[in-house]
């Protein structure tokens, strides 16, 4: 969470709001934020930290581990219409890469801004070439795009 908090302003500049969820109580969130996270990131966690004690929210999102009684790492990107555009679920020992989340946010925002007229090919990064799906592109992607080596 601290890794995400460190990039918070960048995410806000992209019009992204963050909600974090774990089975911990809001009281535990307070102590964690005050005792540890605020020492990693100035000001502590700047978004609402939700408490999902019984795992009901996590179950609906498919990230609640009934055996361990905790949520797995799960990241869901939800657009301004409330539609899930991307998700990533991982077991606990491996942390997320916020750079990849931000890359995906920029890609989905580009697609949305162009009304779907442009798509981002594999490995796209901001400023990179986009594809314009349509009849002319069928069978001709090779002319305009090659995978990075």
């Amino acid at each position: 969470m601290a890794a995400v908090a460190a990039r918070y302003q960048e995410l806000r500049d992209l019009d992204v709001n963050i909600i974090s969820v774990s089975v911990d109580s809001q009281f535990t969130h307070k102590v964690w934020d005050e005792q540890e996270l605020s020492k990693m990131v100035e000001g502590g966690i700047p978004w609402k930290m939700a408490s999902d004690g019984a795992g009901h929210v996590g179950k609906v999102y498919g990230v609640y581990d009934e055996d361990a009684g905790v949520e797995m790492r799960g990241r869901f990107l939800i657009d301004p219409d409330g539609v899930i555009q991307a998700m990533e679920v991982m077991t606990p020992p491996v942390g997320r890469n916020i750079d990849e989340a931000i890359r995906q946010i920029k890609a989905f925002q580009l697609v949305r801004e162009t009304g779907g007229k442009e798509a981002t090919p594999a490995g796209w990064t901001p400023g990179g070439q986009t594809l314009k799906p349509g009849p002319d592109l069928v069978g001709n992607v090779w002319k305009v795009w090659k995978p990075a080596k």
């Binding site: 969470m1 992204v16 963050i18 909600i19 969820v21 969130h29 949520e71 990241r75 606990p92």
Partner: peptide
Amino acid sequence: SVGKGWTLLCFYPGDF
């Protein structure tokens, strides 16, 4: 949150 823009919903195993 959805009414205000994009949302990144992050689940994680636990505090600490």
